Simulated assay, not measured.
Amino acid sequence: MWLLPGRAALNQDVVRVGIIANPASGKDIRRLVGHATVVDNQGKVAIIRRVLIGLRALGVERALIMPDTYHLGERAIDGLSYADQEAPALELVDMPVTGEPEDSEHAARLMAERGVRVVVVLGGDGTVRMVSKGAGNIPLLPLSTGTNNVLPTFVEGTVAGMAAAAVALHGIDAVRVSIRHKWLELLVNGASVDGALVDMATLAGRFVGARAVWNAGDLRQVMVTRADPASIGISAIAGALHPVDPEEPLGVALQLSPQARRRVLAAIGPGILAEVGVVSASRLALGEAVAVVPERPILLAMDGERAVALHEGEDAAVRLRDDGPWLLDPGLVMREVVARGLLDRSPKDDAR
C-alpha cells in the first residue's frame, strides 16, 4: 500500500472513490495518421491532480488509484505535495501491473471489493469498456483522454472530482444523475463471451494484432448502441444513417461492403474521414440479436479495438441489452450539489 507521506493511515473501509487512468489511451495509430492532438501522460497527471483537488474540496479524505507503468498516481500526488495543496491520501490498488488493457478491469474489480462508490476513468471508449467489466454497478465518471471519446465526458478535472465526491459522500442518488448505458453482448455458440458499450464490428482478418481499427474498408458489419453524426469512431457510420440517442431503447445494425452503391461519409477517427459502402441499415430493438456474418476466420472489434477472432465451428450473434454500466452526468450532479447547498460556504449564522 502506498500513501501520501505525512498523512495518517485511515481505516481501509472508508475509501469511497477510485481513479483508473490508462497511460496508453489516446496514443494509437489513429491519432498519428489523423494529425490528432495527443493527451500525453504528463497531461493525464495534471488531470488527476485536478480531480484530487476537487475530491478533497467536497470532503474525500482517501482515494484508490490503479498502478500503472508510468506511475501516474505517484507523479500526481508528488506535484500536489510540492505545491502544498490539500489532497486526499492516495492508495495504490494492490495488484500486478502488466501494461495490458485488462489492468483496468482488474483494478475496477478490486475497487468494487473495497466498497468504492464512484470510479473516475481517464481514457477513451475502450478504457471505459474494460473498467465497466470489473466495476459492476458502481457508477463511472469517464473523462476524455482517448482516441474515440463517445462515452467520456469533456469536463474539467476539478469539477469531475467534485461531482464524484458528491455522489460518493453526500447521498446524491446516482440513479437520478446517471444514464444506465446500453451494451452489445457477444454470444458465441450460445454462450456470452464479451461485450461492447458503443459499437461492435466484424472485419476481415484472422489475428487480433494491432488493436485499433482505422481502415473502414475492412468492415463487414457494424452494430451500435448509439449513433451520432457529430461523434467520431465506428458508430459515426451509423450516425450518418440513423441517429440514435443514448437514452433511446434502440440500436442500429449495418451490413457494409466496399462495393455497395449506397455510400456515406463518416469521421471514423480524429482527422480520418471515410466513404463507407452500406448494403443495409436497420434499427435494432432491445433483446434483439443479429447473426455475425458466416465468413471465417473473422475478427470482432469492440468500441474501436480488435478484441476477438472467430474461427470455423464458432457461430456468433450480437444482442442489444439495456443493463450496462451507470455513467454519471457531471452537469446533473453539480446541479444537485447546488440544490443541496454543498457549495455554500457562508457563515453558519448567516440568515440567508
Results as ranks from 00 to 15, higher is better:
Trp2Tyr: 14
Asn11Tyr: 09
Ser25Leu: 01
Gly26Glu: 04
Gly26Cys: 12
Ala36Leu: 06
Val38Asn: 02
Gln42Trp: 11
Ile47Met: 15
Gly54Pro: 10
Leu55Ala: 13
Ala57Ile: 01
Gly59Ala: 11
Glu61Val: 05
Glu61Met: 10
Pro67Lys: 08
Tyr70Ser: 11
Gly73Ser: 08
Arg75Asp: 12
Ala76Tyr: 14
Ala76Val: 10
Ile77Met: 14
Pro88Gly: 09
Glu91Ile: 15
Met95Ser: 00
Thr98Leu: 05
Gly99Met: 05
Ala108Tyr: 03
Arg114Gln: 12
Gly115Met: 06
Arg117Asp: 02
Val119Pro: 05
Val119Asp: 00
Asp125Pro: 04
Met130Lys: 14
Ser132Ala: 14
Gly136Ile: 08
Leu140Gly: 00
Thr145Asn: 07
Gly146Trp: 07
Val150Gln: 10
Val150Lys: 04
Pro152Gly: 12
Gly157Lys: 08
Gly157His: 04
Leu169Gln: 01
Val175His: 15
Val177Phe: 02
Arg180Met: 14
Arg180Phe: 08
Leu184Lys: 07
Leu184Pro: 01
Val188Leu: 00
Val188Arg: 13
Ala191Arg: 15
Ser192Met: 06
Val193His: 05
Asp199Ala: 15
Val208Trp: 02
Arg211His: 08
Met223Arg: 10
Arg226Lys: 15
Gly233Met: 03
Pro243Leu: 02
Val264Asp: 00
Ala266Cys: 02
Val279Glu: 15
Ala281Asn: 06
Ser282Met: 02
Leu286His: 05
Val293Gly: 11
Pro294Trp: 01
Leu299Arg: 00
Ala309Met: 07
Gly313Pro: 10
Asp315Arg: 15
Ala317His: 06
Arg319His: 08
Arg319Lys: 15
Arg319Asp: 09
Leu320Phe: 13
Asp329Ala: 11
Gly331Pro: 01
Gly331Val: 13
Val333Met: 05
Met334Trp: 07
Pro347Val: 07
